[in-house]
Design a protein around this nucleic acid. Sequence first.
DNA 1: GGCTATAATGAGAAGCGTTCGCATTAGTGT
DNA 2: ACACTAATGCGAACGCTTCTCATTATAGCC
Lengths: 136, 136
Amino acid sequence: MESQDLKKAGLKATLPRIKILNILESSPARHMSAEDVYKALLEGGEEVGLATVYRVLTQFEAAGLVERHHFEGGHSIFELNDGDHHDHILCVKCGRVDEFMDDVIEQRQHQIAEEKGYNITSHSLYIFGICRKCQK
Amino acid sequence: MESQDLKKAGLKATLPRIKILNILESSPARHMSAEDVYKALLEGGEEVGLATVYRVLTQFEAAGLVERHHFEGGHSIFELNDGDHHDHILCVKCGRVDEFMDDVIEQRQHQIAEEKGYNITSHSLYIFGICRKCQK
DNA sequence: GGCTATAATGAGAAGCGTTCGCATTAGTGT
DNA sequence: ACACTAATGCGAACGCTTCTCATTATAGCC
Ligand SMILES: [Mn+2]
Ligand SMILES: [Mn+2]
Ligand SMILES: [Zn+2]
Ligand SMILES: [Zn+2]
């Protein structure tokens, strides 16, 4: 029940929020833009304003339900926060997205932050390339 | 002489391009937005349109004279391309930027790309944190 | 050194993703 | 069920960037 998840996150269980959470959970695409979510709602016959989609996604992010990424291209991409951190590798031709987690890289980043005198708060790592299919 | 650098890069040596290259070379800030460059021109009493600054920076990027980065915040940041690759660590409080290069991370990225079947073309890595000064 | 073909510029309009303002609507706790 | 308040939808506005197009400057040739 999504209402429970929302309330646990400290958010009122409104219809738009439930519907948006639903889209994020049931959509085949793990990584969606606000526009993607909006279109999915419209296709489902739901009446939700685009501004609300943006607002709700931002609230979800603040509540830790969702993560926001900046895959090149100026717009934000959201994905459900499953709790496990990972980074992304993307195909510059077809837009395919794969996920990975590398302990060596994570560790080196902390090392570097320490060397430079920073108290690390986050990082963003994207590898761009051409996927297997697009190489042929 | 900047005119030579521009011609070598296959670009006509126009006044705006020379002035912009000059700003990039002489400004104390290594990392500048288009707006930063524009303001520096104005402060120097130069008459260059903002649209031209954007156009020229994009051309410089295509010519390999300059690199474009997407430090959070929606706008592009440019820096002279010195030929040596590096990544960035930024202070989320004061905006300070430091540079680093880590062979271990670079190598792991290629490893990951290979494992995932990607032909790597580039990557972007930003570490965010709080710098020494801002920690106090 | 001038002349011409052509590419570059400047100014403002337009584009795009995102946020804001405000009147209306809906959830919550009683 | 009610009232209090927060959330919504709509359109306008935003910030950064790109486009359009008339004007201007550069490069190569005479
Ligand atoms: Mn992901
Ligand atoms: Mn740099
Ligand atoms: Zn691909
Ligand atoms: Zn700082």
